[in-house]
């Protein structure tokens, strides 16, 4: 019944697809060019001189491997934040969904209301608090604020309600399992798709974060790749003799920095799509 296809619709969607993918294609093409060719050749096709590898070498080794450092920092900040946030959300989401205690509704309502509090409105006061506590210019300044995910909790609470049947918890209790053992050995497995979703989306949020590290860090060795690239680009924009070379570093660095997340989304699509389904429908 659904075998027929619509050509008009296909053409519209191809146009959309071109809009969304063309800039990325341009970025890839640009990172294969020498600085001279960047200006002299057409942006959407390769120049005769394919210099992707030499550009990559120049980018990762520039300034005593500082770009590699930024990438490593980004990976470290995002993995720790995402893992930590997902762990906290899974524990608390399960706790709110499966236990009855005084203040349950009030606390989950408070957290739900906080979904609307914009993270950037918190950034400046958090910076001021952290500078009093001596946490500014340390990895903690990036990781700690990224551990709070009200939306992650909301998602996990909804997910836990349906994914972990009460009967199974009861059965495990009758078998004499402790509450935390039930969580780690029985419930955690059932919560896995929800946990992967929270991990992935916190990972993206931390990976792409710019405002928070921009204000928290002034030591280039601690920068994540977003702040590092922005700094390079301001050098490239400032003019001077080295502009061209830095420009090529910014372009190749940008290209390199998007590869890991795109790869993660492509590889993990089965998980985040099912997890988002439960969040998106019920949210």
């Amino acid at each position: 019944m659904r075998a027929r296809h619509s050509n008009v619709l296909t053409i519209c969607m191809v146009a959309l697809l071109i809009y969304f993918l063309l800039p990325l294609f341009w970025l890839f093409v640009a990172s294969t060019k020498t600085v001279g060719n960047l200006f002299s050749s057409f942006g959407l096709w390769f120049a005769d001189d394919f210099s992707l590898w030499s550009n990559i070498r120049a980018t990762v080794t520039n300034g005593d491997w500082v770009f590699s450092r930024w990438m490593a920092n980004t990976v470290f900040y995002s993995v720790v934040s995402a893992g930590g946030a997902a762990f906290l959300c899974a524990l608390a989401g399960y706790g709110f969904a499966k236990y009855r205690f005084r203040g349950n509704a009030a606390m989950s309502g408070l957290v739900l209301g906080a979904i609307m509090v914009p993270t950037t409105a918190l950034a400046i006061p958090t910076y001021l608090l952290f500078s009093k506590a001596g946490l500014v210019n340390t990895p903690w300044a990036i990781i700690l604020p990224s551990l709070v995910s009200p939306f992650g909790l909301f998602l996990m609470r909804i997910y836990a309600q349906d994914a972990v049947p009460d009967g199974i918890i009861e059965a495990a209790r009758i078998d004499g399992a402790g509450e935390f053992r039930i969580f780690f050995q029985v419930a955690a497995r059932m919560l896995a798709p929800g946990i992967v979703t929270v991990v992935l989306f916190t990972l993206v949020a931390t990976w792409n974060n710019y405002f928070l590290p921009l204000i928290m860090l002034n030591n280039p060795d601690l920068y994540p790749v977003t702040v590092g690239l922005a700094q390079w680009s301001s050098q490239a924009g400032a003019g001077g003799g080295t502009t061209g070379a830095v420009l090529s570093l910014v372009i190749t660095g940008s290209f390199l920095s998007v590869i890991p997340l795109i790869a993660a989304f492509l590889l993990l699509q089965r998980y985040w799509q099912s997890g988002l389904a439960s969040g998106g429908i019920k949210a």
Binding site: N208, S257, F265
Partner: peptide, 9 residues
Amino acid sequence: LPYAVPAVV
């Protein structure tokens, strides 16, 4: 896919 691209990039 563009969602996976940082705002800076």
